[in-house]
Write a protein that binds this DNA or RNA. Structure first.
Length: 276
DNA sequence: CTACACTCCTAGATTACATCA
DNA sequence: ACTGATGTAATCTAGGAGTGT
């Protein structure tokens, strides 16, 4: 097995990639990766297959895989960023459209597409698939302007938000079925519903964290105040002790909690005994 | 049974855009 | 008209769970 990798304009980087299409433009960064068997290995496999009488179901004797990427779309600076991930690379689409089913190019263009989908594009394969299932072309209508640039942030309508909120109250996690149903109902893409729920959960958690923080802050303040009060009390008791050495002969003082105001008070043992 | 690859999903962090004061 | 703050949709990344080989 051979693994080859080249960056740059070489049109035929590896010996085992003899069908490498020429990269025509010099403007584009080229990336070519190939995975295939060495000639020896291929020969031995071929001999082995012939020895077994051959298998008519096997399509190719040379199942090499190669990946070609030309990345002009990575350098779209119209929007101030080097990489516009929302744009489907036309080179990949063109490859997919023109490649015949029996051609090795098909595998190449599939790789290109897959690479693009796997780059975390929000309109990933899953959603594209879902849309295909629903026979909808709305996505392309909604978030791509005439320049093809997307990530145009849409604002959900009040009705949509309210509906999503209601759904969130019922269940803050969606199963795929619910997601699809909601998307259909609200005329949104499933991905948008998914993202809304993700963000909603994040907001809920953030809010809860803020509330917890506030609560802990109040607790801290209360305890600080209580601590200060107790310190003061200790000081008073010490002062009392130095002024009245016979103080210790008095019954022991205990701390009790007042049930009504939940404040700690000092009571002597005798007071406690008689129930004061 | 185990290891590995792959897919799917999620949380968390971040970015980018729309809106408002 | 411009600007900074804010809310939020969208994106990126890492990690876990499930599944097939």
């Amino acid at each position: 097995m051979e693994l080859g990798l080249s960056l740059g304009g070489s049109s035929k980087p590896f010996s085992f990639l003899e069908k490498t299409p020429k990269l025509s433009s010099n403007d584009h960064l080229g990336f070519c990766m190939g995975l295939g068997r060495s000639q020896e290995k291929r020969d031995s496999l071929e001999a082995e297959r012939r020895g077994n009488g051959g298998d008519s179901k096997r399509v190719s004797s040379d199942p090499h895989l190669q990946l070609h990427l030309r990345l002009p779309w990575l350098f779209d600076n119209r929007r101030g960023r080097g990489l516009d991930v929302n744009r489907l690379p036309m080179v990949a689409l063109a490859g997919e459209a023109t490649a015949g089913h029996s051609s090795p190019d098909r595998a190449v263009s599939s790789c290109q597409l897959d690479f693009w989908f796997r780059k975390g594009n929000s309109r990933g394969k899953r959603d594209m698939d879902a849309e295909t299932e629903r026979g909808s072309s709305r996505a392309s209508d909604d978030d791509e302007d005439e320049n093809g640039s997307s990530r145009k942030k849409l604002r959900l309508s009040k009705e949509q938000s309210a509906f999503l909120e209601e759904s969130f109250k019922e269940h803050n996690n969606l199963n795929p079925k619910q997601k699809l149903a909601l998307a259909k109902q609200l005329n949104l893409r499933p991905r948008q519903v998914e993202v809304w729920f993700q963000n909603r959960r994040a907001r809920t958690k953030l809010k809860q964290t803020e509330l917890d923080c506030e609560y802990l802050k109040r607790c801290c303040e209360t305890l600080t105040e209580e601590n200060r009060r107790l310190h003061k009390e200790v000081q008073e008791l010490r002062a009392l002790k130095t002024c009245q050495p016979f103080y210790m002969q008095l019954p022991a003082t205990t701390l009790t909690m007042c049930p009504s105001c939940e404040r700690v008070t000092t009571t002597s043992a005798t007071d406690a005994k008689i129930g004061i």
